[in-house]
Design a binder for these strands. Structure first.
Length: 274
DNA sequence: GCCCAGGAGTGCA
DNA sequence: TGCACTCATGGG
């Protein structure tokens, strides 16, 4: 068992986990049981220190993006004079962007399209239960996220039976393509080029590509626009466009390198009615 | 029964 | 290029 802690003011487990960037976590004891790739951790906070217990501290230190100073990022958010953003930044100063596994993000966000978060979590959980490896951490059983070869070999019916709906063939096609080609050459690409490449996969459009770039490739200059951010754009920024690509461009021009952080604050703030 | 959910593929003008 | 239509599924 390895264990470390961090200033809770800039690391709040609930705000970090509950803003739609991760689908594999559950309430556990006084905090949360969190899964990423084939790793598990227990994260909990007393409001002063946030503690992470795992068998791989190095992995989760990077996963929770703890090398980065969020006090400055958080402060920047209040300079735009947008009440929703200021409130969210004030209340959610401990919200952090996770550095997650690229392939896990690709499959997870293909599932996310036109879907709601509770159901997305259920689908992913069933896929892991069916194809992942059984492990145990702190007396709790969990399943790893399946490798691409396992997903590729599963067949459309497996995904259908997990409740994926019409996204079953997207997962089948994309996993088989990644099995053949790999994604190694995607890592060094700049955001715009990466997004262009992601758009060529079945089931990945503009919004999902932005999520994968942001959460799976740590491209913080991405701004995914879903139904919630479209609401934010109209309600809180007085925007007139309806094309989500244009809305994303608007926000990227406004927030630049901090686009991803602003997006998460706004998403959480709007959904939570802050 | 309806509307919505972290949308995208397709066909047609 | 733009736009309407369609796609499974479960929760509210």
């Amino acid at each position: 068992m390895e264990k470390f802690d961090y200033d809770a003011r800039y690391f709040n487990p609930l705000h970090t986990l509950d803003c739609g960037q991760i689908f594999r976590f559950e309430q556990f004891k006084e905090g949360f049981f969190v899964l990423s790739r084939d790793n598990a951790c227990y994260v909990h906070s007393d409001g002063v220190k946030t503690v992470v217990e795992s068998e791989n501290s190095e992995y989760f230190y990077n996963f929770f993006d703890l090398a980065r100073d969020y006090s400055k990022i958080n402060g920047e958010m209040k300079k735009f004079g947008v009440p929703l953003l200021s409130r969210s930044a004030e209340i959610c100063s401990g919200l952090r962007l996770l550095n997650q596994d690229a392939e896990e993000m690709i499959y997870s966000f293909i599932i996310s399209q036109n879907n709601n978060i509770p159901r997305i979590k259920g689908i992913i959980s069933r896929i892991c239960g069916g194809l992942g490896e059984k492990r145990e951490f702190m007396g709790r059983q969990f399943f790893t996220f399946p490798s691409t070869p396992k997903l590729a070999a599963a067949g459309v019916k497996f995904f259908k039976d997990c409740g994926c709906g019409y996204r079953d063939s997207f997962l089948f096609d994309t996993s088989n393509r990644i099995k053949k080609e790999g994604i190694k050459d995607l890592y060094p690409l700049p955001s715009a080029e990466l997004k262009k490449r992601l758009l060529t996969y079945k089931g990945i459009g503009g919004k999902v590509a932005d999520c994968i770039a942001l959460f799976g490739f740590s491209k913080r200059d991405s701004f995914p626009v879903d139904t919630w951010l479209e609401k934010v754009y109209h309600d809180d920024f007085g925007g007139k466009e309806s094309d989500r690509n244009k809305i994303s461009q608007y926000f990227c021009n406004l927030f630049g390198e901090n686009s991803g952080y602003a997006q998460q604050y706004l998403f959480y703030g709007k959904r939570s009615n802050l």
